[in-house]
Design a protein around this nucleic acid. Structure first.
Lengths: 150, 150
DNA sequence: CTGAATTATTTAACTTGTTAATCATACGGC
DNA sequence: GCCGTATGATTAACAAGTTAAATAATTCAG
């Protein structure tokens, strides 16, 4: 009687976003795995290639990875010689990260496969649908973040 | 020269989906945490309330959680008395899970807050935008899954 | 110039994601 | 009934997400 009628379980926005993301990522993960990088490691390398040497905090924003996770990922990538780190001259608290030649080489190997996947996805889902999806996602995301000043 | 011109880093579909999902979930997580459940534990409880007693494999499909993760989550929930498990009579390999009275009680406490959050999100982003987003997400997801027969 | 408050990053602890391996039960051919 | 195989679930091992706490360097009030 007094049971709150919860939204139909299959229609929750977080689940729909999760499913869509998984549908996309399932086409990338095997390829990335074959090249020895995880999805997040790939995001970091791509962001570094794009930005050049950058502070870790900024890298976290751009790659959308939380600082504690990023800290571990950078340890891994540095251990494999794919990135380099150095303290900022002006402020020793800040750490600057950059992609290494070896990292660039890896990106160069993976990039064509990545582009091919994007093309296949765009064809399967329809260019126009993808474009509209981007637009709606941006719109909704901007409307929701930041969360209300609780 | 021969560098493959990678897609603008900020415009990747996985990232856009991740951002949107995070924008939504950041409004739920604090509330769920206040009630002592994670996002995934909440998904499982909701799915169980919705389905009644169900096989673990089916639960995994419905809650969109992989079996190894679900296995651990169910251990946790069973340890807290929020769910019950029993072997299926016909096939001893199959395990049937159900939400317990205590679990139902918890869902009853959290549900109103959850609904309030959904309402706030719908207002912030616009009901029509949310509806269109659902539609596009379903469309794109269906077009992409299952992944190509590799 | 010293010490409290701030800021950037890392660690810690726990949970979940991901892939592979294991374990137990069920099924099918013989 | 016995054996190989398939299926459902769990465990293992490593990476990442999440929140809180710790560490280290900087800034600023006094």
């Amino acid at each position: 009687m007094s049971r709150v009628p919860l939204r139909d379980f299959s229609h929750s926005l977080p689940m729909a976003l999760l499913r869509a993301r998984e549908a996309v990522m399932s086409r990338f993960r095997p390829m990335l795995r074959a090249h020895g990088v995880t999805e997040q490691q790939w995001r970091v390398l791509r962001a570094l290639e794009d930005s050049g040497e950058i502070e870790i905090s900024r890298l976290a924003e751009r790659s959308f990875i939380l600082m504690p996770s990023l800290s571990r990922i950078l340890q891994n990538l540095e251990g494999r010689g794919l990135i380099t780190r150095r303290a900022a001259a002006a402020d020793q608290r800040r750490v600057l990260v950059a992609i290494s030649p070896k990292g660039l080489e890896l990106v160069g190997e993976v990039a064509p496969h990545s582009e091919a996947n994007y093309a296949a996805i765009a064809e399967a889902a329809g260019e126009d649908n993808i474009a509209r999806l981007y637009g709606l996602l941006d719109q909704v995301t901007e409307a929701l973040e930041p969360p209300p000043e609780d």
